[in-house]
């Protein structure tokens, strides 16, 4: 059985490899902290200070400021942890799907429905 296979060239599909995990550790660790309500509130009170505390790099900080999921993934973010960040702003997985695909939220929801038919 073949042990190794390439996962990183599937079109439109980020795969959270060791490379992503290394690059994204600080960002994902910050997002993991958002399981805790007090941490979410601390982030909202002082976003810059909170990012500095977790040691985010410039690209990660810029992506957090922009609330840009594609940039966050590019910077090593994992979508399960990023969902906790998105939750602070009440963004659903349809909202972040729409953002990443360039569709309106309504168009994205229609796309989901169409595939169920």
């Amino acid at each position: 059985m073949s042990a190794l296979e390439s996962l990183t060239d599937i079109p439109g599909t980020p795969v959270f490899t060791g490379f992503s995990a290394s690059r994204g550790l600080a960002l994902n660790k910050m997002c993991y902290s958002f399981n805790d309500r007090e941490s979410r509130e601390a982030f909202v009170r002082d976003e810059e200070g909170y990012m500095a505390r977790f040691g985010l790099n410039d690209a990660q900080k810029a992506a957090i400021r922009a609330r840009n999921v594609a940039q966050l993934i590019e910077a090593g973010g994992n979508v399960y942890y990023l969902a906790k960040f998105a939750g602070i702003f009440g963004l659903s997985v349809q909202d972040i799907g729409a953002q990443q695909t360039g569709m309106s939220v309504d168009a994205f929801k229609a796309h989901l429905l169409a595939q169920g038919e």
Partner: peptide
Amino acid sequence: HQLDGERAGLINK
């Protein structure tokens, strides 16, 4: 399901 990337929203019935 796929939550991330340009292919987000994929469902393969």
